[in-house]
Design a protein around this nucleic acid. Structure first.
Length: 587
RNA sequence: GCGGCCGUAGUCUAGUUUGGUUAGGACGUCAGCCUGCCACGCUGAGAACCCGGGUUCAAAUCCCGGCGGCCGCACCA
């Protein structure tokens, strides 16, 4: 803490409030704390749950998206196939003089003109040799470099205590979906498009996580993988949203040094090719709506396109949804990547399991097929014991190619065997092709749950008469209502407790508080964002009415206790406004 | 990970320069009283020197290491 910065910024205030009131705090405090790990208290946990619930309302339920849960630890094969082992492990060199660190592969690209793909393949020894050969020095201070070392930002472990089997903590939940694709596709009865979502923890062993909920080593990721046929335009929700706008910052503009936001409709973004996949545009718009529902106005959001070298290895095109926060400016809250068939294709190669789906043509397509049929009566005498092997190789060969060789040379060679036209019979037959097999494409909206919690907090925070208020949208508030006796005597607490129990039975999240003065109780509730305060006063004892107080306007209305459940249900479902909750009440 | 600044109850902080009483205050919390609508008041209680080592008769204070925080650099697939 330095003296110059006496006025704390919102990040500091939110973190302090979060710790004091139990939203979240750094984990393992009794052992000095470990950076990059956070524990949510009761309120933070509830808030996070409400946010995830909101996302389910907007995305998941509407499109029949399946939600699953898969393990955090995966065998190394999974992340080798996904490309993460290759991309999370980078050779680094440190300048012995100024201690700055550089990506060794980047240095080689820049100063030794080694292509990125070649640089990636080099071993540590080769990297060291190449640096020596090209006499590469520190670009900052001309110092010499120490030995190159890998840094790996995935958490590594062994599966089984005595085992050498390497496992990794997942850096994203997406792979848990891709590896199960066959089964999931069966579960939706083999129909495209469909989506699968997973909310769960992910691990990234960050070098220096120092931004509270914004950058954690263990965090909650929301990965939604949406599978579709790239050749078929059946993005059914598109028409509902095509005239709504997205704030985009395009890569081509960024390249020219402009970070200007262009506000374009979904329709235009697709027509102009700004966004390459229809589903991606739809999810981006839904992501914008989600953030609005969490209290972040549209003008504090933007979608910034990643430049080719900024993109993840799996993405054809990707946008980061960013929210403006006070301390850091634009901060990513979700990523929208067009992953194409990258992941499924890769798992198909590594596992040998067919990840393709079959799509039936509307009408079977008929076409002529050439086949090369070995004539064993001729092959036998010609190749003796090797005849069977030759026959097998022939059946695997491309018939068109065999035929062409016969025409051109009069024979076809298979390894050391020379096959003559009389050894085989070439047939042509009509085949009906009923459909085709292809690998579905994927667009992926991926949210950082913890970042959503943080921006919801920052945007809910305001100060009124010197008091902190968290003005959460009513449906994400961790506690929905507080019930208070006006004074803690004359039977008011007993009556208030009755009201409290009634509301609990109705399924509301309610707190009861009788400590201190009524003003203090309102203040305490405002600070954790309780939208409604229900106060039992002396009138209540006469006519069973209570006052209801609005957190944001501090106005009050008066209503019958027996009507509370219905009124509150309507209010929290946005079917009623505060003024509809009762008759205006002035003290 | 590097450099700079820093670490005292839940929070903010006095004390550290110059080692020496029972580590002081405010807010919050809890209990009791009070309280007829926005942190009222009174009484009381609980609660702290980041961790480890060293120097010293004596360490919150000086030294070293670790952990953590803020800022900058690097990193953020």
């Amino acid at each position: 803490m330095t003296d110059e910065n006496k006025t704390p910024d919102k990040f500091t205030i939110i973190n302090e409030l979060a710790r004091r009131r139990g939203f979240f705090w750094q984990s393992y405090e009794i052992y000095g704390g470990v950076s990059g790990f956070v524990t949510y208290g009761f309120l933070g946990f509830k808030l996070k749950q409400s946010i995830e619930k909101k996302l389910r309302q907007l995305f998941v339920n509407k499109f029949g998206i399946l939600e699953i849960e898969s393990p955090i630890i995966a065998p190394s094969k999974v992340f080798e196939a996904s490309g993460h082992v290759g991309h999370f492990k980078e050779p680094m060199v440190e300048c012995l003089k100024c201690k700055r660190r550089f990506r060794a592969d980047h240095l080689l690209q820049e100063f030794a003109e080694i292509s990125p793909s070649e640089a990636e393949k080099l071993s540590l020894e080769e990297v060291e040799t190449a640096i020596d050969e090209h006499k590469i020095r520190c670009p900052e201070c001309e110092g010499t470099f120490g030995e190159p070392k890998y840094f790996l930002t995935m958490f590594k472990t062994t599966i089984g205590p005595y085992s050498e089997a390497v496992g990794y903590g997942r850096p994203e939940a997406a792979q848990g979906i891709f590896v199960e694709f066959r089964r999931l596709y069966e579960m939706v009865r083999e129909k495209l498009p469909f989506g699968v979502m997973q909310i769960g923890h992910a691990l990234r062993n960050e070098i220096s996580p120092r931004q509270g909920l914004i950058r954690l080593r263990e965090f909650t990721i929301i990965d939604l993988e949406f599978f579709f046929n790239p050749e078929e335009s059946n993005c059914f929700p598109l028409k509902d949203v095509e005239n709504e706008t997205l704030p985009l910052v395009l890569a081509e503009k960024k390249l020219r040094g402009l970070e200007e936001i262009v506000e374009v409709t979904v329709k235009k973004a697709l027509e102009k090719g700004y966004i390459k996949a229809e589903w991606q545009a739809v999810f981006m718009l839904l992501a914008k709506k989600l953030l609005v529902a969490l209290g972040v106005p549209a003008e504090k959001q933007r979608f910034i396109e990643k430049l080719p070298w900024e993109k993840a290895h799996y993405a054809l095109q990707s946008f980061d949804q960013e929210v403006y926060v006070e301390r850091w400016g634009w901060v990513e809250v979700s990523g929208h990547a067009y992953r194409t068939d990258y992941d499924l294709k890769s798992h198909m190669q590594f596992s040998g399991v067919d990840m393709r789906v079959f799509k039936e043509h509307e009408k079977p397509v008929e076409r002529m097929q050439t086949a090369v049929k070995p004539l064993m009566t001729k092959l036998g005498p010609a190749f003796k014991k090797k005849a069977a092997k030759v026959a097998e190789m022939l059946s695997e060969a491309d018939p068109g190619e065999v035929e062409a060789h016969f025409k051109k040379n009069g024979y076809y060679t298979l390894e050391e065997y020379k096959v003559l036209p009389e050894h085989v019979e070439i047939t042509r037959q009509k085949v009906k092709e009923r459909g085709k097999r292809f690998i579905p494409h994927v667009v992926e909206p991926s949210f950082g749950s913890d970042r959503l919690v943080y921006v919801a907090l920052e945007y809910a925070y305001r100060v009124k008469d010197g008091r902190a208020i968290l003005s959460f949208p009513r449906d994400i508030a961790p506690i929905q209502a507080g019930v208070y006796p006006l004074v803690s005597k004359d039977g008011l607490p007993e009556k208030a407790l009755q009201v409290y129990k009634t509301l609990i039975d109705e399924g509301f999240t309610v707190e009861y508080d009788e400590a201190g003065s009524i003003g203090r109780r309102y203040a305490r509730a405002d600070e954790i964002g309780v939208p409604l305060g229900i106060t039992v006063d002396y009138e209540t004892l006469k006519d069973n009415t209570v006052t209801i107080r609005d957190r944001d306007s501090w106005r009050q209305v008066r209503s019958q206790i027996k009507n509370l459940p219905e009124l509150l249900h309507k209010y929290f479902r946005w079917k009623a406004d505060f003024k509809d909750l009762g008759k205006p009440f002035e003290v």
